[in-house]
């Protein structure tokens, strides 16, 4: 999952980004201007949005996101603890409202919860053909046997599990892999899809020529 974090507090932003990068691709930006530019360029899966930013108020960006019709899940992370602020944030279109200070693991859990709701998968444990995926434990089984996956392999699999039955473009998979390394090889997507096929079964992921890949239900 590719996450955009807009947080101007350097120490907090650094900690959150570092924590989330263990399992997700994270772009951390410190202003609304930079965040807007990033959102125009990349199709993010989730937005973590601080409210008080140097160049404006996060709620305004949130309203713009909702006003443009985007269904991008948004979690507001803020120190504004007034009931009125929370109501304003949720009414502006936020999917969740996390008050500072927060626990990083709780933030992760909330991200997964919001993401599950966004893809209409309330149960974190999915059965896909012969494999079972636990989104919380981040584990995969084939039959009764647990299959170890690397972080990148998991990122690719998670991207497929959120889009079962639909074609996932190579560009989207590259976005998912983007943050795991400074450089992405031109054939990185093919490499990781191939590795997943070996681990999960050759028919687990179909190639749609010229379009991308698809994992069926």
């Amino acid at each position: 999952m590719r996450i955009l974090l807009i947080e101007d507090e350097p120490l907090l932003g650094e900690a959150v980004a570092t924590h989330l990068k263990k399992i997700h691709a994270v772009d951390w930006l410190q202003s609304l201007d930079a965040g807007c530019s990033a959102m125009r360029a990349v199709n993010y899966d989730l937005l973590l949005l601080d409210l008080n930013l140097p160049d404006g108020y996060g709620i305004d960006l949130l309203r713009s996101v909702r006003g443009s019709g985007q269904k991008l899940p948004v979690i507001v992370i803020t120190a504004r603890d007034q009931i009125r602020d929370r109501i304003d944030g949720l009414n502006a279109g936020a999917d969740d409202y996390v008050l500072k200070p927060f626990d990083l693991d709780e933030l992760t859990a909330r991200i997964h919860s919001v993401q599950r709701r966004a893809v209409a998968l309330p149960n974190p444990r999915q059965s896909i053909g012969s494999i079972t995926v636990d989104q919380i434990a981040r584990k995969v089984w084939r039959g009764d046997q647990e299959i170890p996956l690397t972080a990148r392999e998991w990122a690719i699999l998670e991207c497929f599990t959120h889009r079962l039955g639909t074609i996932v473009s190579k560009a989207k998979l590259e976005e998912v892999l983007y943050d795991f390394g400074s450089e992405i090889e031109s054939n990185a997507v093919e490499v990781y899809v191939s590795r997943l096929r070996k681990k999960l079964g050759s028919d687990s992921i179909s190639t749609m020529r010229g379009l991308g890949y698809r994992m069926d239900r």
Partner: peptide, 14 residues
């Protein structure tokens, strides 16, 4: 007050 506390807590947890 919350911002520095949040930063400190997150950094310590990390």
């Amino acid at each position: 007050l919350r911002n520095p506390i949040a930063s400190a807590r997150a950094q310590v947890q990390l």
